[in-house]
Design a protein around this nucleic acid. Structure first.
Lengths: 199, 199
DNA sequence: GTCTATATAGTGATAGAC
DNA sequence: GTCTATCACTATATAGAC
């Protein structure tokens, strides 16, 4: 009789690979990458070690696949935001809104992207702040300076002052220091940051 | 009252405990806590496993001792800064200066304090952003709002906007995204942040 | 493709001589 | 206090049946 339930749970996902990724993301962010073993993922996903190694070369490959997926997805989103807003002012506000709503809607994903120390478990990866999404944001700020929307100043300083508070606020939220949804604070954070850099 | 100087059997380091802490801090921050084994610390410090376990209950205890020491030291420093500057404006600038010069002088210490995910290896510790140093900074900002130096707004938002850029800039530096000493950027970062929150 | 069983290496930690 | 030798355990990863 025990055997009857063996397959039922897995009806929801025809995609074992996706299940592994999802489970990995959950455990990596809640317990930490190094506090999560392949066996933990196996147990949580209710599959076998063999299956995991069928789809991924190893534990690090799971993290790498997650990371690549999520960087790409952020990249698309940010490209879209930048291309559909005219002024740098509007763009920056939309970006803060995107980051906050992403944190509200999928805090685990956000934690993995913005808070994890990727290089500790993916030693060959460049730092996250040198990835494409960040480059695009820096380019946006440079445009703002060139067009006079933002005061003349070092572009990294300007980028940091404009988006640093948002990143910091997200971190406080993920740490549990700030409770409740972030979205209501988009304007408070963004407008104060903007006030600091605007012409 | 006979004062005899502390014995030094070993000329190089009379203080084995201190050597272990120093070595631990170095390895924990450069390789990461989980990528550092007790045996690594043993080899790097050129002592024996037995010595390490004579002074510390285990690996986590080394991290905990480091953490406590450094939180205390930051705590003292921040208390001092707040008590020797009158206006919140001056205080906040001095705090940014302190954080930047600490990063320049001992990046490894700063990395361990501001960037490490302590809860992954010290599960019982409250989040760093809830520790005394951060509470003091928040209280400072609240004073600034009460006295009219800072605009009326949520105090956590104000704290985040005033110090978020500095923390973010430090992070970029520790990541390797920004090169060179941070101290020359104290005013650029601080004045822009202050501009956002001031009355 | 999925499974179980197992190989291999490295971990944190202990015992006990000196 | 410091050392060497060794423990018990867990981790990643592989082999091979079905």
């Amino acid at each position: 009789m025990a055997h009857t339930s063996k397959k039922k749970i897995r009806a929801s996902h025809q995609d074992t690979r996706g299940l592994i990724l999802k489970t990995g993301l959950n455990l990596f962010t809640t317990r930490g990458y190094f506090n999560t073993s392949i066996h933990d993922i196996r147990a949580e996903a209710d599959i076998s070690i063999g299956s995991i190694y069928h789809y991924f070369k190893g534990k690090e490959a799971i993290a790498k696949a997650l990371y690549d997926d999520l960087v790409n997805s952020m990249n698309k989103e940010i490209t879209d935001i930048i291309s559909t807003n005219d002024s740098v002012r509007e763009c920056s506000r939309a970006l803060v809104h995107y980051l906050f709503s992403m944190t509200d809607n999928s805090p685990i994903t956000t934690e993995f992207m913005l808070h994890a120390k990727h290089r500790e478990f993916m030693p060959d990866e460049p730092p996250f702040c040198s990835t494409e999404p960040f480059e695009m944001i820096k380019a946006l700020v440079e445009r703002g300076i060139a067009q006079g929307e933002i005061r003349e100043m070092d572009s990294i300083v300007a980028t940091t002052c404009l988006f640093g508070p948002a990143f910091r606020y997200i971190l406080l939220h993920l740490d549990g220091t700030v409770k409740g949804p972030l979205e209501p604070y988009v304007d408070a954070i963004w407008s104060t940051s903007w006030r600091g850099v605007k012409q």
